[in-house]
Design a protein around this nucleic acid. Structure first.
Length: 214
DNA sequence: CTCAGCGAGCCGTTACATCA
DNA sequence: TTGATGTAACGGCTCGCTGA
C-alpha cells in the first residue's frame, strides 16, 4: 500500500467523518442541498473498514462466511426464499451468526437468484426470437416462390385462351365450338370450378391438396 | 378514518476479499 | 501491482401492519 494512497484514504475518511458528524447533528443537511440543486440525492458514503483498530479488525475477520455456514444457508434458501423472523433467529443461532447477517445473506441471495432467473429468461426469449425470425424468412421466401408460380400459371392460362380464341375466329359461325362450349370452365360457383377439373383417377403432381375438395 | 412508528423487503451502491 | 469479479453490508425507499 503506497503512502499516497494511505494519505488519500485517511483524508477521505476524515472528510467522511465530517459528513457523518454533520448528518448526525443536522439530519437531511446534504440531501437538502442536493434537492435545492435539482440533482439526485447523494447517497451517504460508508466509512471504510481498514481494520486498524482491534474491534474493526475483529469485524473484518468475521466478514467471510465459512463453507459450512454457506452450505446451511443455501439449504435453507432452497427450502424457502423468504425468511420469517423465527426461522431467521433459528438459523442465526445454528450458525453462530447475527440474525441481521442471515437477513442480509437472504436478501443478497434473492437478488442473485433474481438476476440468474432474468438471464435465463432473456436467453430463452432470445433463442425464441431467433427461431421466429428464421421462420418469418422461410415463409417470406415461400410467398415469393408461390407468387412466381401463380404468375406463371396466369401466363399459361392467357396463352391457352389466346390459342382458343384464334381457333374459334377461324371457324364458321355454325361451328360447334362456340365460346359457351369452351368457356363453361368459368361457370362454377366461384367462376373457376372447372379449371382444376381432374378425372376421377387422374393425379396432378403438386396438387395433392386438391383431392381434399373433390 | 387517519397518522405515526415499526419491521421487512427491494434496489443500488460501497467496501472488502480473492484471483488471474 | 492491478483490474475484474464475487459477496457481505449498508442506506434509502416503499409497503403493509398495528396501535393510538
Amino acid at each position: 500500500m503506497s503512502q499516497d494512497y494511505e494519505m488519500m484514504t485517511s483524508q477521505m475518511n476524515e472528510h467522511e467523518d465530517h459528513i457523518a458528524l454533520i448528518s448526525q447533528i443536522y439530519p437531511g443537511f446534504y440531501t437538502q442541498i442536493a434537492t435545492h440543486q435539482g440533482e439526485p440525492k447523494p447517497r451517504r458514503r460508508r466509512k471504510k473498514n481498514k481494520g486498524g483498530e482491534n474491534s474493526q479488525c475483529a469485524v473484518a475477520k468475521k466478514r467471510k462466511l465459512n463453507q459450512e455456514q454457506v452450505t446451511l444457508l443455501e439449504l435453507n434458501f432452497g427450502n424457502e426464499h423468504k425468511l420469517e423472523s423465527e426461522r431467521k433467529d433459528r438459523i442465526a443461532s445454528e450458525l453462530g451468526l447475527d440474525p441481521r447477517q442471515v437477513a442480509v445473506w437472504f436478501q443478497n441471495r434473492r437478488a442473485r437468484w433474481k438476476n440468474k432467473k432474468l438471464e435465463e429468461e432473456y436467453s430463452k426469449l432470445k433463442s425464441l426470437h431467433e427461431t421466429v425470425v428464421l421462420d418469418k424468412c422461410r415463409l417470406e421466401s415461400e410467398v415469393v416462390k408461390l407468387k412466381e408460380q401463380l404468375s406463371e400459371a396466369e401466363k399459361e392460362i392467357l396463352q391457352l385462351t389466346e390459342r382458343v380464341d384464334g381457333v374459334s375466329s377461324k371457324s364458321t359461325s355454325s361451328s360447334v365450338l362456340s365460346m359457351e362450349a369452351i368457356d363453361p370452365v368459368f361457370h362454377g360457383e366461384f367462376g373457376y370450378e372447372d379449371v382444376f377439373y381432374i378425372g376421377e383417377n387422374n393425379y396432378v403432381l403438386g396438387m395433392e391438396w386438391m383431392n381434399l375438395f373433390m
